[in-house]
Simulated assay, not measured.
Amino acid sequence: MTLKLVIFDVDGTLVDSQGHILASMDGAFKAHDLPAPGREAVLSIVGLSLPEAFVRLVPDHADKRDSLTQAYKDTFMDLRKTGQAHSPLYPGAAEVLADLAARDDVVLGVATGKSRRGLDHLIEVNGWERLFQTLQVADHHPSKPHPSMVKTCLAETGVDARDAVMVGDTSYDMEMARGAGVRGLGVSWGYHANDALTDAGAVQILGAFTEMPAALATLWEVP
């Protein structure tokens, strides 16, 4: 039996977190009396680590990036405390994760721009404590699209790159996968356009979670 690995991005792939991301970004910019970027601009940087996100969002305010990062985190925590930071799962996500986790030949991992604290909270809320065998977060790696997170997933699970798949909604996920020698499976329900995913190297783009089992079977049949 050849062990296979499916690595999932989180925001925009497993959970729809745009509501609290937009609200947290708005709070961070208000705290600095700066005009908040528009929705499209904010969603375009989802998946990057926060410092890298602010490099792109405020190229002319390098002196404020650290404090904007902290203000974002503070706003997000305030939203969580007041129950306003709920990120619903996309339809079919829970079922596909459970089915994959039940297979003896598949292990699951996460590669996310979230902090470990943010990911731990999401895992606790959804009861995923025993679901993933490798968890990679922005705290311990260069920002996507650097391949460090995917390479670490491979190292921790012992799975060969040819037997692994990265599932994500952004070009950063697909570029990260390509950099690690892993095939990228894009999803259409997230924050980047399909064309961006294809241009970044996605081998296929899913229209719904229900399409994932067949897509994975096809990918694993063709080395």
Results as ranks from 00 to 15, higher is better:
Thr134Leu: 00
Ser87His: 11
Met77Ala: 15
Ser143Ala: 11
Leu135His: 09
Asp139Arg: 03
Leu48Thr: 07
Leu97Gln: 12
Asn126Val: 12
Gly113Thr: 02
Ser49Lys: 00
Thr75Tyr: 02
Ile123Arg: 08
Asn126Pro: 14
Ala71Gln: 00
Val125Arg: 15
Ala102Gly: 09
Trp128Glu: 01
Asp120Phe: 01
Asp60Lys: 06
Arg80Gly: 06
Leu122Cys: 08
Pro59Leu: 07
Leu122Tyr: 06
Val58Ser: 02
Gln136Glu: 15
His121Gly: 12
Arg80Lys: 14
Arg130Lys: 15
Asp74Tyr: 09
His61Asn: 05
Ser143Trp: 03
Val58Ala: 11
Asn126Phe: 13
His61Met: 04
Pro145Tyr: 05
Thr82Phe: 04
Leu48Cys: 14
Ala111Asn: 03
Asp104Val: 00
Ile123Phe: 05
Asp74Gly: 02
Glu129Thr: 13
Leu97Tyr: 07
Ala101Leu: 04
Ala94Arg: 13
Asp99Arg: 06
Pro51Ser: 03
Thr75Cys: 14
Gly109Gln: 01
Val106Ala: 11
Gly127Trp: 02
Arg116His: 11
Met77Phe: 11
Leu131Cys: 10
Val150Thr: 12
Thr75Ser: 10
Leu48Ile: 07
His86Gly: 14
Ser115Gly: 02
Arg80Pro: 07
Ser143Lys: 02
His140Asn: 15
Ala85Thr: 09
Phe76Arg: 14
Asp63Arg: 08
Arg116Phe: 06
Gly92Val: 08
Thr75Ile: 02
Gln84Leu: 14
